[in-house]
Design a binder for these strands. Structure first.
Length: 477
RNA sequence: GGCCCCUUCGUCUAGUGGUUUAGGACGUCAGGUUCUCAUCCUGAAAAUCGCGGGUUCGAAUCCCGCAGGGGUCACCA
């Protein structure tokens, strides 16, 4: 039975890098019919951010990464919040103390800082155990409790990174329990993963260097380590640095708010470091569950490319039925949409569908169908063909157009017929006629195709707008 | 600085000794689709596979060295 977990600390929002870790863990569990667990690692009270836990949960849910056990979904191995498990860590710590594998750290933070500076000035890596006290008093909980390590070589296998060998120089006496009574990540996650029967740990590469230390602790605890998979970093779009909140990595919920769809987001994140070996570019949730595997995750970092995300999202938008898209678009319409029927909005959406990158664009591009935009003279004055014509000529064309359109029933086919006939009659290039009508009826620099737009705008409104343009041209002649 | 990891078109990547004149996708550019924007279609440019040695009949693929990048060396995770 496979059990994976996502174990964030509630110190902020969740960006694409963290979400990808969660996604991979979720996929691994789902494809095996196992369980996916959410555990909140809130052992650093100073860095904890209020509301972050709820935000994390919301983000997970927004992408459909449902968990079988978690803080708000208790299971057999709870609680799933580390600050509620302090007694569990104390019990395990006690075992280590009794075995002589943990001891009270007699030094102050200042002392340790001094050791660290000493090591630095000698250009040596800092190793606490170089200063390990000869004898220590019993741990009363007011001092940090340190692990008494047993430095040695390790050859271990990481499910993604492969075989890794390290020497004893990376093993140290790290802190198990801080002087505030909370365990460190290094200790707590090992206990929790064991107690919660986690089979696979997926996490970022910032922990790779610590694995030998964990192995050392697993041995002292007589715990069989789970399978460990270290994921390559997701890099920021510009630099070579890891994607981080500091460098403006976006909150995953921001993408949701902009109308990026969960399928696009998931497909995008999954292919940041993973692929199935084929030329397939877009994966549905179920396809991912079927084809995901740890051994096809790459080892090198992947840069975050929002161009690709935009393309993917547009692709997903276009592949939906109008009905599906309409449901998803619900929260993205401008205020003015309220006075229109769902049927009308659907017609508009049908025209927008093929040009949306994300749903938040609906707000602006739908306006010409919902309100009469003010006349924008620049649309004509800056038009390379129309700017050559006099106002009289423009007015003449518009009047003829109006005359012709009066007889149309405003279905797309009939509009096309009338427009073509008109083109023959007035002896103008298509670009002149069509551009002029399009500008008069939309007042927008760009819009969906002319007949399509006219058909949706409707006969009455279209003729009104043409009149308005004529009036404007006459007045400002 | 020590240790560990990484290195194929601008980007995401395929590739596990010969089917590779290194394939796909995003992006870019050009053309087509009676009007704009987009979609869609067609096409193009784009990686001497980080560099240098080896092994081999043959290497992006194996070995060694080097360089560059990243991570780590917290009473943070």
């Amino acid at each position: 039975m496979i059990r994976t977990r996502f174990a964030p600390s509630p110190t902020g929002y969740m960006h694409v890098g963290g979400m990808r870790t969660a996604l991979f863990a979720w996929l691994l569990a789902r494809q095996a019919g196992g369980q996916f667990i959410l555990r909140i690692e809130d052992t650093d009270k100073a860095r904890e951010v209020r509301g972050a836990k709820e935000h994390l949960i919301k983000s997970l849910k927004a992408l459909g990464l449902n968990y079988d056990e978690g803080p708000d979904n208790n299971g057999p191995y709870g609680p799933y919040v580390q600050s509620q498990r302090l007694n569990i860590y104390k019990t395990w710590a006690q075992k280590l103390i009794e075995q002589g594998r943990a001891y009270a750290d007699p030094y102050s933070e200042k002392d340790v800082q001094l050791f660290r500076e000493q090591a630095k000035s000698q250009k040596k890596p800092f190793l606490y155990r170089d200063n390990r006290p000869a004898k220590t008093s019993t741990w009363d909980g007011s001092q940090p409790l340190r692990f008494k390590s047993d430095p040695k070589n390790y050859n271990f296998s990481d499910a993604v990174m492969g075989e890794i060998s390290t020497g004893p120089e990376v093993i140290d006496d790290f802190v198990l329990i801080k002087s505030d009574g909370f365990p460190t990540y290094n200790f707590a996650h090992i206990i929790d993963d064991f107690e919660m029967k986690i089979t696979h740990i997926l996490r970022g590469q910032e922990f790779l260097a610590s694995i030998p230390n964990y192995l050392n602790l697993y041995e002292a605890l007589a715990i069989n380590p789970p399978i460990i998979a270290t994921l390559p970093p997701v890099l920021g779009p510009d630099g070579k640095k890891k994607l981080s909140k500091r460098d403006g990595a976006k909150d995953v919920l921001d993408y949701i708010k902009l109308g990026y769809l969960e399928e696009a987001l998931i497909s995008f994140m999954a292919t940041l470091g993973w692929n199935d070996g084929s030329t397939k570019e877009i994966f549905s949730r179920n396809e991912l569950i079927d084809s995901f595997s740890l051994d096809r995750i790459g080892r090198s970092g992947a840069k975050f490319d929002d161009k690709r995300l935009n393309w993917l999202n547009g692709h997903v938008i276009r592949s939906m039925t109008l009905e599906e898209l309409f449901v998803k678009s619900k929260d993205f319409w401008p205020e003015e949409a309220k006075s229109y029927s769902p049927d009308y909005l659907k017609q508009v959406l049908g025209l927008l569908q093929e040009r949306l990158k994300y749903l938040a664009e609906i707000k602006n591009v739908s306006r010409l169908f919902l309100v009469d935009l003010p006349i924008n003279p620049q649309l004509i004055s800056e038009h390379k063909q129309l700017s050559k014509l006099s106002s009289q000529e423009l007015i003449a064309i518009l009047k003829q157009a109006k005359q012709s359109l009066k007889d149309s029933d405003f279905t797309v086919d009939d509009l096309n017929n009338h427009l073509n006939k008109l083109l023959d009659e007035i002896n103008q290039k298509p670009i002149i006629l069509f551009s002029l009508i399009r500008i008069a009826t939309t007042q927008a620099p760009f819009s969906p195709g002319l007949s399509d737009s006219l058909s949706v705008i409707g006969k009455e409104k279209s003729l009104e707008r043409i009149d308005a343009q004529i009036n404007y041209l006459q007045k400002n002649n």
